[in-house]
Structure formats: C-alpha cells, structure tokens
Write a protein that binds this DNA or RNA. Structure first.
Length: 297
DNA sequence: CTGTAATCCTGCGAGC
DNA sequence: TGCTCGCAGGATTACA
C-alpha cells in the first residue's frame, strides 16, 4: 500500500530516467481508473516533454511542457500529469519491448525506446491531466496539509490540540500532515509511545512534539529502506521495499511486542485496522509498563 | 464537529 | 480439494 515512503521511492527511481524525455505515443486499457481518463487528454499529452517529477503527499506530479518551449516562454499555462497509486498502483519505466503484465492501464511511449507504465490490479489509483499546473497546485495547497519534514512545531501543536478525534484519525488526516497512511500511522504511534485511541486534545505539548519528530523519523527511516512491500508494492525500478522487516506493530496482531513482549492488539479505529502495544502505548500518560490485557475485537 | 459506513476493485486467506 | 466470504484500504461522499 503505497504511502509517502513508497511514493517517494518511486519518484526517486523514476526521476533520472524520465526527466527530459518526450512522450511520443500513449495508449490505455479500456478499463477506467478511480478517476476517468478524458479522451482529450491523450492528444494533449502526446508530444509533451517531461520536465520534472515530484511528490506531494502521496501524489506523483509530472511537469509537462512542449519541447523547445521553456515553461517561462510557453504561450499557455504549463500542464501537469497527476498520478495516485491508490492501493496497488505501480509506476515503472521499462524497455518498450518488455512483455506486458496484467492490469496494465496506461502506457506512455518515450522517445528513447522506453515506456512509462501504470499498472494497478485493484484500480484504486488514478491519473489525471491538468492544463494549468498553477491551478492544481493552488487546489492541493488548500486540500493537503504540510509535508511531514517541514512541520511547524507550533502549528502542529495547535492542529492536534484542536481536535477530539483519536490520534489514529489525526495521522490519517491529510490536512494535518500529508502522506501518512495506515501502516506508518501505526508505526509512528508505537515509536512515539502514544495510544492511538487518545484524543488529539489530550496530548501535552511535549507529547505533541514527540509525535511530530517521530513522524519525520519513521518516514525518513522507511524511505531509506525503500518503503514497505506487504504484498504488491514495487519501486520505480521494480525493486521491493525492505521496511516491512522493521515493522513493530502493523500486521503483528497477537505477536509479542518487540520491546516488552506484550501481545500486539488490533482494533478498528477511524475505520481502519489499528495495531498497538497496550503496554508501550499506555492509554493514559504515566502508566508505562502496565499491561492492560485488552482483547482484540 | 465527529464518527460511521458505503463506494470504487481484485486477490488472497480463512473457514467450511 | 474447492467453494464462499470477508477483508485489505485512499479518497470521497453521504448520512447519523
């Protein structure tokens, strides 16, 4: 399930092999993705040059432009291709002759004989074309919170303290911090020693700061490991991630906590399966080390 | 405001 | 061993 570390890995893998390339042709499967591909987009994309590849939250942004027309001299606004990997999306660059896998939905032929391919078995992902990059970025600035590595301490304390929603819901809220999904939310809360059920407003300033620095630390560590491959995820170069080996709580229901040996609990929070150690993540501050013997439901 | 649940979708594992 | 069923969840939307 691609979250920020997985998306960042894809972007880092692909950036050197797609930047400066020109899209010479495009084809797609008959099946629609999460958001429909408009017929007019294909004509707009073909002939474009990929000027850059970026990540914002869990979104992948491809800056497009016309060859020999630098963005600042372009007569029209600079276009953008925006991709979301959803649950099972894979974005890779391969030689054009390579055998086509199942569930291949978008293929962009590049002028150097390679192809940028979007594969997504579950079709939770999306790809959209926007003629005006600035408009999309303005919309994303409104809808998405800050990147986790640039969190303002005071603004973060204020956002977390202002809500009674549980910490799990807070971390999944892309408006509070962009890029965290279910796996890393659980891992972050474990490493911060915070119970995922606690309301945001119950955190002390110190706990809030600890949560903020742990978000960045866990995501950085996961990026260094090229993300987590639970089942489907592949990086842009087709490699699996390695962070799944380091997961402390996610997917470890009933297994002993790696720190204290207490059985990891799984409970549904914010509509998602949430894993935590009842001893290392005490329900109330200052009760560290007291096993709660809570049963999974 | 907050939570819950349905929606999209396929693959897989548990259970019978 | 083969079937059904439930679950996995990111973003969005509807509703209690």
């Amino acid at each position: 399930m691609p979250e920020l570390p997985e998306v960042e890995t894809v972007v880092r893998d692909l950036r050197p092999v797609v930047t400066g390339r020109t899209i010479t042709a495009m084809r797609r499967s008959r099946q629609q993705l999460r958001r429909p591909w408009q017929a007019a987009w294909t004509a707009a994309v073909v002939g474009s040059q990929i000027n850059g590849l970026r990540r914002r939250g869990k979104w992948i942004l491809l800056d497009l432009g016309k060859p020999n027309h630098p963005p600042e001299q372009a007569p029209t606004p600079s276009p953008l291709l925006r991709v979301h990997l959803g649950m099972t999306g894979q974005l890779t660059v391969v030689p054009a002759g390579e055998a086509e896998p199942e569930h291949l939905h978008l293929v962009f032929a590049l002028e150097n004989g390679t192809e940028l391919r979007f594969r997504d078995p579950r079709r939770f992902g999306s790809a959209e074309y926007f003629p005006d990059r600035a408009a999309v970025e303005a919309a994303m600035a409104r809808e998405l919170g800050p990147e986790p590595f640039a969190l303002d301490p005071e603004a973060f304390r204020s956002a977390v303290g202002a809500t009674t929603r549980c910490l799990k819901a807070v971390l999944l809220d892309q408006q509070i911090v962009a890029g965290v999904g279910n796996i890393y939310a659980d891992e972050i809360l474990f490493r911060a020693g915070l119970d995922p059920r606690r309301p945001g407003s119950s955190l002390s300033a110190g706990e809030c700061d600890r949560l903020r620095t742990t978000i960045a630390a866990v995501l950085e560590r996961a990026i260094a490991a090229r993300g987590s491959t639970i089942r489907d995820y592949l990086g842009g170069s087709g490699l699996r991630g390695q962070f799944q080996m380091e997961l402390a709580v996610y997917g470890r229901t009933g297994q002993p906590c790696r720190v204290c040996g207490t059985a990891i609990v799984c409970q549904r929070l914010a509509g998602r399966s949430s894993h935590y150690c009842p001893a290392c993540q005490p329900a109330r501050p200052g009760r560290r080390g007291q096993p709660l013997r809570r049963q999974a439901t």
